[in-house]
Amino acid sequence: MVETNDYQMAIDLLRCHLGISEEEAKQQLGISADNTTQQRIAETQQALMGLSHER
């Protein structure tokens, strides 16, 4: 998981200027743990399925 402290200023700026929640700001920055993990799982599954079809 990405250290949120590294991005805290960007998160705060997005929250202030856009009026969004902290989780929404993290998603906008692409550092949301749930979003990133789910996306990586989906990409890995697609890659593995592609390998099995090549045989």
Results as ranks from 00 to 15, higher is better:
Met1Trp: 04
Met1Ala: 13
Glu3Gly: 11
Glu3Gln: 11
Glu3Pro: 11
Thr4His: 01
Thr4Trp: 02
Thr4Pro: 00
Asn5Leu: 01
Asp6Ser: 13
Asp6Arg: 02
Tyr7Trp: 15
Gln8Leu: 14
Gln8Glu: 15
Met9Phe: 10
Ile11His: 08
Ile11Tyr: 02
Asp12Leu: 06
Leu13Val: 14
Leu13Glu: 10
Leu13Gln: 09
Leu13Arg: 13
Leu14Ile: 15
Leu14Pro: 02
Leu14Glu: 02
Leu14Ala: 07
Arg15Leu: 00
His17Lys: 11
Leu18Thr: 03
Leu18His: 04
Ile20Ala: 00
Ile20Pro: 06
Ser21Trp: 00
Glu24Tyr: 09
Glu24Lys: 15
Ala25Glu: 05
Ala25Trp: 03
Lys26Glu: 08
Lys26Thr: 05
Gln27Gly: 06
Gln27Ser: 07
Gln27His: 03
Gln28Cys: 03
Gln28Leu: 13
Leu29Ile: 06
Ile31Thr: 06
Ile31Trp: 01
Ile31Glu: 04
Ile31Ala: 06
Ile31Pro: 09
Ser32Asn: 15
Ala33Thr: 06
Ala33Gln: 10
Asp34Ile: 10
Asn35Ile: 10
Thr36Leu: 14
Thr36Gln: 11
Thr37Ser: 11
Thr37Met: 11
Thr37Val: 06
Gln38Leu: 14
Gln38Cys: 08
Gln38Phe: 08
Gln39Leu: 13
Gln39Ile: 08
Gln39Phe: 10
Arg40Thr: 10
Ala42Gln: 05
Glu43Cys: 00
Thr44Ser: 06
Thr44Asp: 07
Thr44Tyr: 06
Gln45Trp: 03
Gln45Lys: 08
Gln46Glu: 13
Gln46Thr: 10
Gln46Gly: 04
Gln46Ser: 05
Ala47Asn: 07
Leu48Lys: 09
Leu48Val: 09
Met49Thr: 07
Met49Leu: 09
Met49Gln: 12
Gly50Trp: 04
Gly50Phe: 04
Leu51Gln: 12
Leu51Cys: 04
Leu51Phe: 09
Ser52Met: 14
Ser52Ala: 10
Ser52Val: 15
Ser52Thr: 15
His53Cys: 08
His53Pro: 00
Glu54Gly: 07
Glu54Leu: 12
Glu54Val: 10
Arg55Val: 13
Arg55Tyr: 07
Arg55Pro: 10
